[in-house]
């Protein structure tokens, strides 16, 4: 029997966290949650995420800052990251204008807009997991 794939949801909005973790749990994923970038790093110590869903605009360090930090850390640089955002600007330029200042940093493995389309979420996460296999 294969173990469920693990997804970490990082979002400061408790409703979004509740929604995404419940929804993904109902679809066979094991989930954990963090309300900001700093606590995400703490959670990752004990939760070997197969994919990370990260919000962009959060108090303190943004989700894109977290992405850059994870990409630079050998422990997590290969973990796929999906950015979930309500910002049209970030959706439009696919995070590239932000990441442009960080040479050599790989962009997100997927970008999803808010409100999250459940079918699109499953498709993106499913694709990432199958790629990993």
């Amino acid at each position: 029997m294969t173990l469920p794939k693990k997804i970490l949801v990082v979002d400061d909005d408790a409703d979004t966290v509740e929604y995404l973790t419940t929804f993904l749990g109902d679809h066979g994923y094991e989930t954990a949650a963090a309300s900001d970038s700093r606590s995400a790093l703490t959670v990752l110590q004990d939760f070997a995420a197969d994919t990370i869903l990260v919000d962009v605009l959060m108090p303190g360090r943004s989700g894109l800052d977290l992405l850059v930090q994870l990409r630079r850390d050998p422990r997590w640089q290969n973990v796929p990251i999906v950015v979930v955002t309500g910002s049209d600007k970030i959706l439009e330029d696919d995070c590239q204008s932000y990441l442009g200042s960080h040479q050599g940093i790989r962009g997100p493995d997927g970008v999803l807009g808010k409100p999250v389309d459940p079918a699109a979420l499953l498709a993106v996460v499913g694709h990432i997991m199958s790629e990993a296999e």
Partner: peptide, 19 residues
């Protein structure tokens, strides 16, 4: 931006009620 967040919350609530 705010409305998108609220729609996400509403969608989450509706999902939890239905499921």
């Amino acid at each position: 931006h705010g409305i998108k967040g609220l729609l996400n919350g509403l969608a989450g609530g509706i999902y939890l009620v239905n499921s």
